Amino acid sequence: MISDGMAEVLRLLRLGEVGDPARACARALGAEGVALSLLLGAERTAEPLWYHPDLSARFEELQFTLGEGPGPDAVSTGSPVLEPDLERVRPERWPALLPAARDLGVHGVCCFPLGVGAIRVGVLTLLCDGERRLSRQQYTDAAALTATLTGALLNGDRRDGGGGGGEGGDGNGPELGTALEPPSALSRAVVHQATGMVSAQLDVSIQEALLRLRAHAYGSERPLGEIAADVVARRLRFNDDFDDDFDDDVSGPYSPDGGKG
Protein backbone atom coordinates (compact mmCIF):
# COMPACT_ATOMS: atom_id res chain seq x y z
CA MET A 1 0.00 0.00 0.00
CA ILE A 2 1.32 3.43 -0.89
CA SER A 3 2.05 5.94 1.83
CA ASP A 4 -0.30 8.78 2.72
CA GLY A 5 2.31 11.24 1.46
CA MET A 6 2.53 9.64 -1.98
CA ALA A 7 -1.25 9.27 -2.17
CA GLU A 8 -1.55 13.02 -1.62
CA VAL A 9 1.09 13.78 -4.25
CA LEU A 10 -0.70 11.60 -6.81
CA ARG A 11 -4.01 13.28 -5.98
CA LEU A 12 -2.52 16.74 -6.48
CA LEU A 13 -0.80 15.64 -9.69
CA ARG A 14 -4.11 14.43 -11.11
CA LEU A 15 -5.69 17.76 -10.21
CA GLY A 16 -2.78 19.68 -11.72
CA GLU A 17 -2.21 21.45 -8.41
CA VAL A 18 1.48 20.70 -7.85
CA GLY A 19 3.64 23.71 -8.64
CA ASP A 20 6.93 21.79 -8.30
CA PRO A 21 6.23 18.09 -8.90
CA ALA A 22 9.87 17.01 -8.55
CA ARG A 23 10.20 18.63 -5.12
CA ALA A 24 6.87 17.15 -4.00
CA CYS A 25 7.84 13.68 -5.19
CA ALA A 26 11.27 13.88 -3.56
CA ARG A 27 9.68 14.84 -0.26
CA ALA A 28 7.09 12.05 -0.44
CA LEU A 29 9.73 9.46 -1.39
CA GLY A 30 12.29 10.63 1.13
CA ALA A 31 14.82 10.89 -1.70
CA GLU A 32 17.79 13.21 -2.00
CA GLY A 33 16.62 14.13 -5.49
CA VAL A 34 14.15 13.25 -8.22
CA ALA A 35 14.26 13.68 -12.00
CA LEU A 36 11.81 12.73 -14.72
CA SER A 37 13.00 12.43 -18.32
CA LEU A 38 10.92 11.66 -21.40
CA LEU A 39 12.25 9.66 -24.35
CA LEU A 40 11.87 11.73 -27.51
CA GLY A 41 13.05 11.65 -31.10
CA ALA A 42 14.18 8.81 -33.32
CA GLU A 43 17.14 8.12 -31.00
CA ARG A 44 14.79 8.04 -27.98
CA THR A 45 16.89 10.70 -26.29
CA ALA A 46 16.16 11.32 -22.61
CA GLU A 47 14.80 14.87 -22.43
CA PRO A 48 14.64 16.22 -18.83
CA LEU A 49 11.13 17.31 -17.89
CA TRP A 50 11.43 18.18 -14.22
CA TYR A 51 13.95 17.69 -11.45
CA HIS A 52 14.87 18.65 -7.88
CA PRO A 53 17.44 19.75 -6.80
CA ASP A 54 19.93 20.97 -9.42
CA LEU A 55 22.17 17.99 -8.58
CA SER A 56 19.55 15.73 -10.18
CA ALA A 57 19.77 17.71 -13.41
CA ARG A 58 23.58 17.53 -13.39
CA PHE A 59 23.49 13.78 -12.90
CA GLU A 60 21.01 13.38 -15.76
CA GLU A 61 23.33 15.42 -17.97
CA LEU A 62 26.24 13.23 -16.90
CA GLN A 63 24.40 10.04 -17.88
CA PHE A 64 23.39 11.58 -21.18
CA THR A 65 26.93 12.71 -21.99
CA LEU A 66 28.50 9.34 -21.14
CA GLY A 67 25.67 7.18 -22.45
CA GLU A 68 25.94 4.86 -19.45
CA GLY A 69 24.48 4.53 -15.98
CA PRO A 70 21.38 3.25 -14.19
CA GLY A 71 19.06 5.39 -16.31
CA PRO A 72 20.17 4.04 -19.71
CA ASP A 73 20.23 0.53 -18.25
CA ALA A 74 16.68 0.86 -16.92
CA VAL A 75 15.47 2.06 -20.32
CA SER A 76 17.34 -0.75 -22.10
CA THR A 77 16.12 -3.58 -19.86
CA GLY A 78 12.69 -2.25 -18.96
CA SER A 79 13.37 -3.08 -15.30
CA PRO A 80 14.22 -0.88 -12.31
CA VAL A 81 17.93 -0.46 -11.63
CA LEU A 82 18.50 -0.01 -7.91
CA GLU A 83 21.95 1.06 -6.74
CA PRO A 84 21.43 3.05 -3.52
CA ASP A 85 25.17 2.83 -2.78
CA LEU A 86 27.37 3.45 -5.82
CA GLU A 87 30.47 2.53 -3.81
CA ARG A 88 29.30 -1.09 -3.95
CA VAL A 89 28.94 -1.14 -7.75
CA ARG A 90 31.63 -2.99 -9.72
CA PRO A 91 33.89 -0.43 -11.43
CA GLU A 92 33.63 -2.20 -14.79
CA ARG A 93 29.85 -1.82 -14.87
CA TRP A 94 29.92 1.96 -15.46
CA PRO A 95 33.64 2.78 -15.74
CA ALA A 96 33.20 6.38 -16.81
CA LEU A 97 30.14 7.25 -14.75
CA LEU A 98 31.14 6.00 -11.31
CA PRO A 99 34.17 8.29 -10.71
CA ALA A 100 32.33 11.22 -12.29
CA ALA A 101 29.28 10.64 -10.08
CA ARG A 102 31.52 10.50 -7.03
CA ASP A 103 33.08 13.83 -7.98
CA LEU A 104 29.60 15.24 -8.49
CA GLY A 105 28.53 14.17 -5.00
CA VAL A 106 26.02 11.52 -6.05
CA HIS A 107 26.14 8.56 -3.65
CA GLY A 108 23.27 6.32 -4.77
CA VAL A 109 20.80 6.12 -7.66
CA CYS A 110 17.61 4.18 -8.33
CA CYS A 111 15.98 4.39 -11.76
CA PHE A 112 12.50 3.24 -12.78
CA PRO A 113 11.62 2.95 -16.50
CA LEU A 114 8.29 4.33 -17.68
CA GLY A 115 6.67 1.99 -20.16
CA VAL A 116 4.72 -1.16 -20.84
CA GLY A 117 6.32 -4.20 -22.45
CA ALA A 118 8.72 -3.09 -25.17
CA ILE A 119 7.34 0.46 -25.12
CA ARG A 120 9.51 2.98 -23.24
CA VAL A 121 8.34 6.55 -22.71
CA GLY A 122 10.65 7.84 -19.98
CA VAL A 123 12.63 7.17 -16.83
CA LEU A 124 12.22 8.29 -13.22
CA THR A 125 15.51 8.78 -11.34
CA LEU A 126 15.86 8.94 -7.55
CA LEU A 127 19.05 10.07 -5.84
CA CYS A 128 19.79 8.26 -2.57
CA ASP A 129 22.04 9.18 0.33
CA GLY A 130 24.16 6.04 -0.06
CA GLU A 131 23.88 5.09 3.62
CA ARG A 132 20.79 2.88 3.48
CA ARG A 133 18.94 0.66 1.07
CA LEU A 134 15.68 1.68 -0.57
CA SER A 135 12.94 0.66 1.86
CA ARG A 136 9.99 -1.46 0.81
CA GLN A 137 7.72 1.54 1.31
CA GLN A 138 9.91 3.76 -0.86
CA TYR A 139 9.94 1.12 -3.59
CA THR A 140 6.14 0.77 -3.43
CA ASP A 141 5.68 4.54 -3.62
CA ALA A 142 8.16 4.89 -6.49
CA ALA A 143 6.44 2.06 -8.39
CA ALA A 144 3.04 3.73 -7.90
CA LEU A 145 4.38 7.06 -9.12
CA THR A 146 6.00 5.37 -12.12
CA ALA A 147 2.75 3.58 -13.01
CA THR A 148 0.77 6.82 -12.78
CA LEU A 149 3.23 8.74 -14.96
CA THR A 150 3.39 5.89 -17.48
CA GLY A 151 -0.38 5.69 -17.75
CA ALA A 152 -0.70 9.43 -18.28
CA LEU A 153 1.99 9.49 -20.97
CA LEU A 154 0.63 6.47 -22.85
CA ASN A 155 -2.87 7.95 -22.69
CA GLY A 156 -1.51 11.12 -24.32
CA ASP A 157 -2.81 13.22 -21.43
CA ARG A 158 -2.21 16.95 -21.96
CA ARG A 159 -5.37 18.46 -20.46
CA ASP A 160 -6.26 19.69 -23.95
CA GLY A 161 -9.98 19.68 -23.45
CA GLY A 162 -10.35 16.44 -25.37
CA GLY A 163 -12.30 14.51 -22.79
CA GLY A 164 -9.60 14.11 -20.13
CA GLY A 165 -7.52 11.56 -21.97
CA GLY A 166 -6.09 13.65 -24.78
CA GLU A 167 -5.29 12.13 -28.13
CA GLY A 168 -5.27 8.37 -27.83
CA GLY A 169 -6.81 8.44 -24.32
CA ASP A 170 -10.14 7.04 -23.22
CA GLY A 171 -10.93 9.64 -20.58
CA ASN A 172 -10.45 7.10 -17.77
CA GLY A 173 -6.72 7.42 -17.24
CA PRO A 174 -4.87 9.77 -14.88
CA GLU A 175 -4.85 13.44 -15.84
CA LEU A 176 -1.64 15.18 -14.91
CA GLY A 177 -2.15 18.44 -16.76
CA THR A 178 0.94 20.49 -17.50
CA ALA A 179 3.10 18.29 -15.22
CA LEU A 180 3.87 16.13 -18.26
CA GLU A 181 4.01 18.82 -20.94
CA PRO A 182 7.29 18.57 -22.89
CA PRO A 183 9.24 21.85 -22.69
CA SER A 184 8.66 24.24 -25.58
CA ALA A 185 12.43 24.45 -26.17
CA LEU A 186 14.01 21.00 -25.99
CA SER A 187 17.40 21.11 -24.30
CA ARG A 188 18.65 18.21 -26.44
CA ALA A 189 17.63 19.76 -29.78
CA VAL A 190 21.18 20.95 -30.49
CA VAL A 191 22.46 17.42 -29.87
CA HIS A 192 20.02 16.01 -32.43
CA GLN A 193 21.16 18.61 -34.95
CA ALA A 194 24.86 18.02 -34.27
CA THR A 195 24.39 14.25 -34.50
CA GLY A 196 22.93 14.66 -37.98
CA MET A 197 25.81 16.89 -39.04
CA VAL A 198 28.45 14.46 -37.75
CA SER A 199 26.62 11.60 -39.45
CA ALA A 200 26.91 13.47 -42.75
CA GLN A 201 30.55 14.50 -42.17
CA LEU A 202 31.66 10.93 -41.42
CA ASP A 203 29.09 9.10 -43.57
CA VAL A 204 28.10 6.93 -40.61
CA SER A 205 24.83 6.02 -38.93
CA ILE A 206 23.12 8.34 -36.47
CA GLN A 207 23.95 5.91 -33.67
CA GLU A 208 27.67 5.94 -34.47
CA ALA A 209 27.67 9.71 -34.86
CA LEU A 210 26.22 10.08 -31.37
CA LEU A 211 28.89 7.72 -30.02
CA ARG A 212 31.61 9.85 -31.64
CA LEU A 213 30.12 12.98 -30.07
CA ARG A 214 30.01 11.30 -26.67
CA ALA A 215 33.59 10.07 -27.00
CA HIS A 216 34.79 13.59 -27.74
CA ALA A 217 32.75 15.03 -24.85
CA TYR A 218 34.22 12.45 -22.47
CA GLY A 219 37.76 12.98 -23.75
CA SER A 220 37.54 16.75 -23.44
CA GLU A 221 35.67 16.59 -20.08
CA ARG A 222 32.90 18.84 -21.39
CA PRO A 223 29.12 18.37 -21.44
CA LEU A 224 27.76 16.82 -24.60
CA GLY A 225 25.53 19.85 -25.14
CA GLU A 226 28.57 22.13 -25.38
CA ILE A 227 30.27 19.88 -27.91
CA ALA A 228 27.07 19.72 -29.95
CA ALA A 229 26.77 23.51 -29.91
CA ASP A 230 30.32 23.79 -31.28
CA VAL A 231 29.47 21.39 -34.10
CA VAL A 232 26.31 23.28 -35.02
CA ALA A 233 28.18 26.61 -34.90
CA ARG A 234 30.87 25.06 -37.15
CA ARG A 235 33.60 25.60 -34.57
CA LEU A 236 34.12 21.84 -34.52
CA ARG A 237 34.14 19.46 -37.46
CA PHE A 238 34.65 15.71 -37.33
CA ASN A 239 36.64 13.91 -40.03
CA ASP A 240 37.28 10.28 -40.84
CA ASP A 241 40.97 10.33 -39.90
CA PHE A 242 41.35 7.67 -37.20
CA ASP A 243 44.25 9.51 -35.57
CA ASP A 244 42.65 12.94 -35.69
CA ASP A 245 38.95 12.57 -35.02
CA PHE A 246 38.15 16.24 -35.11
CA ASP A 247 39.33 19.67 -36.15
CA ASP A 248 38.82 22.31 -33.48
CA ASP A 249 39.28 25.98 -34.30
CA VAL A 250 39.21 27.66 -30.90
CA SER A 251 39.88 31.11 -32.36
CA GLY A 252 36.37 31.44 -33.76
CA PRO A 253 33.66 29.83 -35.85
CA TYR A 254 35.00 27.44 -38.46
CA SER A 255 32.95 27.14 -41.63
CA PRO A 256 34.13 24.20 -43.75
CA ASP A 257 32.15 25.44 -46.74
CA GLY A 258 33.77 28.86 -46.72
CA GLY A 259 30.83 30.57 -45.07
CA LYS A 260 28.36 29.74 -47.86
CA GLY A 261 26.14 27.51 -45.73
Rank of each mutant, 00 (worst) to 15 (best):
S220F: 11
H216V: 06
Q201P: 09
D160H: 15
G177D: 09
R212L: 02
D243T: 07
F238K: 03
G151F: 05
G168R: 14
E226I: 00
S199A: 15
L180S: 04
R235K: 15
L180R: 05
Q201L: 07
N172Q: 04
D170I: 08
G164M: 00
P182F: 08
G164C: 01
P182A: 02
N172F: 10
D170K: 15
S184V: 15
S199E: 11
L186T: 07
E181H: 14
G163W: 00
I227K: 05
E167Q: 11
G169D: 08
R222H: 07
G163M: 00
D240Q: 13
A209I: 03
L186F: 12
G225N: 03
L176Y: 07
P182Q: 06
D170S: 15
A217C: 01
G156N: 09
S205C: 09
G177R: 06
V190L: 12
L176G: 07
G165N: 02
G164R: 04
P174N: 03
A209C: 08
G168A: 10
D230N: 13
A189R: 14
G196V: 04
T195I: 01
A179I: 02
G151Q: 05
A185W: 13
A229Y: 07
G166E: 01
D203Q: 09
E175I: 00
V204S: 13
P182D: 01
H216N: 00
A185Q: 14
L186D: 10
A194N: 00
L153E: 02
A194Q: 01
A229F: 06
P174T: 03
R214V: 04
G151D: 02
A217W: 01
A215S: 13
G165A: 06
T178W: 15
A215D: 10
V190W: 09
F238T: 09
S205F: 07
N239G: 14
N172M: 10
R235F: 08
L211W: 09
S205Y: 05
M197H: 01
D157W: 07
D203P: 08
P183G: 13
A209N: 06
H216G: 07
N172V: 01
R159L: 09
T178R: 14
V198R: 10
A215M: 06
A215H: 12
D160T: 12
A189D: 08
A179V: 05
R235C: 12
E221V: 08
S187T: 06
V191Q: 05
A217Q: 01
G162A: 05
L186H: 15
S220D: 09
G162N: 02
S187C: 07
R212I: 00
S205M: 01
R159N: 13
D243K: 12
A194Y: 05
R158P: 06
E167F: 12
R188T: 11
V191W: 04
Q207C: 12
D230K: 14
D157T: 04
R237E: 12
E221R: 15
A215K: 03
